[in-house]
Simulated scan of single mutants.
Amino acid sequence: MTLRAAVLGHPIGHSKSPALHRAAYAQLGADLAYEAIDVTVDALPVFMAGVRGDGRWRGLSVTMPLKAAMAAEVDDIRGVARQLGVINTVAFESGPHDGSPARLVGYNTDVAGIVNALRYAGATAKPVAVVLGGGGTAAAAIAAMKEFGAASVAVYVRDVARAAEARAAAAAVGLSLQVLPLTGAAPAVAAADVVISTLPPRAADGVAEELARHGSLVDGVLLDVAYDPWPSRIATVFSDAGGRVVPGLEMLLYQAVEQVRYFTGLEGPAAAEVIDVMCDAVGAPRRAF
C-alpha cells in the first residue's frame, strides 16, 4: 500500500515542496507518494475529514493561507506551534493496533527553518529586527527572533488592523511588538540587523522601490521567504545596497528536513544523504544541516 503525504495551500502550483520531499523519500526507499493539493480555508474541514478516514496518510505540509486554520483540525499541538497557534506540519501518529485511527499532531517547523537559515547567513544575536507581513509565517518569524534574543520586533503590514497572528505570536513568546504600516518601512529595513519578508511574491516590491529611493547602505541580513520568482525585487535592492540575502529556498529546505523527520522517523547517518538529495532536487548548494 503506497502511503500518502502532501502540501496543502491556495494557490499551490508554485510549491517546490513536492520536489524536496519526493527526493527524500526516493533516497530512503520509502513507498510514500507526495503531492501538492489546492485547498482553501473554507474547504479545509471537509478535506481533513476525508484525510481522517484514509489510513494511508502519513503527513501534511501546510502553507498559506491554512496555517492558522489547521489548528482546529488536529488532535494535538506540540512545541512552538502550541504557543503560536500556527501549524505548518501535521504528522499522523499510529494508534494502538486495534483499528483506531491515527492521531493528527500539529507542529511548526518554520521557526527552525528561519533560525537555521539566518544562522547559516551569519545573523547576529540580539538583532534589531524587522518583519514584513503579519500572517502565519510572520508569527514563526517573531518566534525565531525570540530565539535570537531580539528585544523587540517591528512588524510592517499592509493593514494594521489585520495583524492578529503576529500580535498573538509576540504575546505568546513574550516579545515586545510594534505594528506599523508597510508604506514607509524602508528606513527601518535599511537600519535593521535582520529583515524577514513573509509577504507573497512581489508584495514587497513597493518597499524595495522605497528602499532604492532611500539610497542608504545596509549592513544586515534579509530573508525573503518568497522564492519564486527569484531573485525578488527586494532581494536585489537589498543586496545592491550592501546587505546579505538569504533566499526563501534556504528556509524551505531547513523546515522540510524537519518534516521528513516527522513523517518517516529519519535520523542518524541517513539524514545527511537525504539532505544532499533534497538540495540537488531544487538546485540549491549542499548545506551542513
Rank of each mutant, 00 (worst) to 15 (best):
A81F: 10
V277Y: 01
A272T: 03
E165F: 04
A163Q: 03
A123C: 09
Y156C: 08
V155A: 14
A141E: 04
A154V: 00
A166F: 09
G95I: 04
G59K: 05
A141T: 03
A190E: 05
V130G: 03
I77T: 11
P229E: 01
V218S: 08
G13N: 13
A172K: 06
G29I: 04
P229M: 02
S197T: 03
G220W: 00
A171T: 04
A154I: 00
A235C: 12
V62A: 11
P127F: 05
G55Q: 14
S15P: 12
M145W: 13
Y156N: 06
V195R: 00
D76C: 06
N108I: 06
E73C: 03
L223R: 03
D75E: 02
I114K: 09
T2F: 15
V105T: 05
G59D: 08
I142M: 06
D159V: 13
V115I: 11
G242F: 04
S239Q: 14
R22L: 04
A186N: 08
S197C: 02
S239H: 15
W57G: 07
A117N: 05
E210W: 10
S239G: 15
D193C: 05
L60M: 07
I12F: 10
P269H: 02
P285E: 10
L175E: 12
V39E: 02
A6S: 10
Q259E: 15
S94P: 07
V225F: 08
L132P: 01
T63G: 15
A284L: 15
